[in-house]
Each structure stands twice: as C-alpha cells, then as structure tokens.
C-alpha cells in the first residue's frame, strides 16, 4: 500500500463580516468558502462544522435581516449600465479563454501550478522559495492567458472551459497565497516558516507583531493586493503555545 500526503483543505477564504456578508452587499459566503471560524489551523471535520453552524444558526437570521430592508425593492432590471458592463466583461473573459494560441491544455497549467505550490508553498516554506514562487506563478499566469487551449464551443456545456475559468482563478490565488505566507514572519498553525522555529524544530509564533487576520483586498495583480489587518482580540482566554510534549 502506498501512503502519500496530499493537500486536503486550505485555511482562509472570502472575507465576511459578523453576519457572513462579503464585501459585495447582499452576497453572503457560508461554510468552507469563508475565512471566519478556524483561523490558522485545521482539524478534522472543521469544514463540516462550519457549514452546519453557518447554515443552521447564522444565515437564517442574517439573510432575513438583510432582505427585510429590500422588501419593497421590486424586480431589478437588467437594462442597466452595470449589468451591460458585467455581461461584456464576462463575454470578453470567455472569448479570451476560447481564443488562446492553443499551445497547451488547461491541465498542463494546472499541473505546473500544483507543482510550484507543492514544492514552495507547502506546509514548510521559506522566504527564498516563496519569492521565486510568486515570480514563477506570475509568469505561468501570463503564459496561460496567451497560450491556453480550450477546445469545443462556449455555447454548449464545456467542462474544459469551466476548468479553464477555475485554473485562471487558481493562478491569481496561488500568487496571493505565497505573498500572504511571505508577509507573516512567524510560524503558526498550518503555516511553518523555516526561518521561524525553536532550537528543537517547533513552530515559533510572534504574538506581538502578528496577532491579526490578514484580509487582502483584490487589486487586479495579486502582488498589488492591499493588506487589511484585523486584530485578534482575546477577552476571556490568554494566548498560549500549544504543546503536545
């Protein structure tokens, strides 16, 4: 029997407020898709618990509260400049994917990205590798948008096109992922920076400088994403280091 470690879950997700609303008004993110419950660590069944808690106990109240103010809004017309713009942008993105130079398959890029992430942004990471990962991903992303090959048509069900849209997102998120790991000069939870460890190889946390949630604001290019720090405030417990020894 072969046993192999594999990526199973990524910590973090869409920023939401206390009501699970994202930065887009009226757009709520629940469960594994949002960042809110589990911080820097991930234990078994975390995603399940988050999905259940959000779905059973939070959203039934917060969405209702949001909709209460919209009760007299009425149907929203699609004949607006904003709608036209969104439609145009989406069409342009699809067309761009369909009309690449056709050199490499979507899987080719997905695998290349996976290898960079696996080698340089894994559980154990360091400054040199993270910096080069950012450059490699940016280069791969540029190549993807120029040379990706998506067969078939955009007017029928097309799983390659669906996959291309996801890989395009991964190529942005991957670089942001490395940037975030680079910003955090400490080891905590699932983030082990090789530079920050104790003499016997344990994670070395820096609560003075890094007791915050990193919320990154989208800004076209991932390396220009803007950092918003949300302080972690502990009122009833004090921060301690967990030891299994």
């Amino acid at each position: 029997m072969k046993i192999f470690p594999a990526v199973h879950y990524t910590m973090g997700g869409l920023w939401v407020d206390y009501n699970l609303q994202t930065t887009v008004p009226g757009c709520f993110a629940a469960g594994e898709a949002n960042f809110s419950d589990h911080g820097a660590n991930r234990l078994g069944a975390s995603a399940l618990m988050q999905g259940l808690a959000d779905g059973y106990f939070v959203l039934p109240y917060t969405i209702g509260d949001y909709l209460a103010d919209e009760i007299r809004t009425g149907p929203i017309s699609t004949e607006t400049a904003e709608f036209d713009q969104a439609e145009k942008d989406t069409r342009a993105r699809i067309e761009k994917l369909m009309n690449g130079a056709g050199t490499h398959s979507v899987d080719y890029y997905h695998k290349k990205l996976g290898l960079i992430m696996w080698n340089k942004c894994g559980m154990s990471r360091n400054e040199t590798d993270l910096k080069s990962a950012m450059d490699e991903i940016a280069e791969l992303r540029a190549d993807f948008w120029k040379n990706v090959r998506v067969p078939g048509s955009a007017d029928t069900k097309n799983q390659e096109l669906e996959k291309a849209g996801r890989v395009a997102d991964f190529l942005e998120l991957g670089e942001l992922f490395a940037k975030d790991a680079l910003d955090r000069n400490e080891s905590c939870g699932g983030h082990f920076r090789e530079e920050y460890q104790t003499a016997d190889g344990e994670a070395l946390r820096d609560d003075v400088n890094y007791a915050y949630v990193s919320a990154w604001e989208y800004n076209e290019n991932p390396r220009d994403a803007k950092l918003h720090k949300e302080d972690l405030v502990f009122e009833n417990v004090e921060l301690k280091t967990r030891s299994y020894k």
Binding site: G102, S105, D107, R149, P151, G152, Q159, E160
Partner: peptide, 13 residues
C-alpha cells in the same frame, strides 16, 4: 481526455 485536447479534439465529458 488530455490526449484528445492535445490533438485538438473535444474531450469526453
């Protein structure tokens, strides 16, 4: 499917 895509054919969905 990867073979089909590389040949420029539509993959099996």
């Amino acid at each position: 499917n990867e073979e089909l895509v590389n040949k420029g054919e539509e993959p099996v969905e």
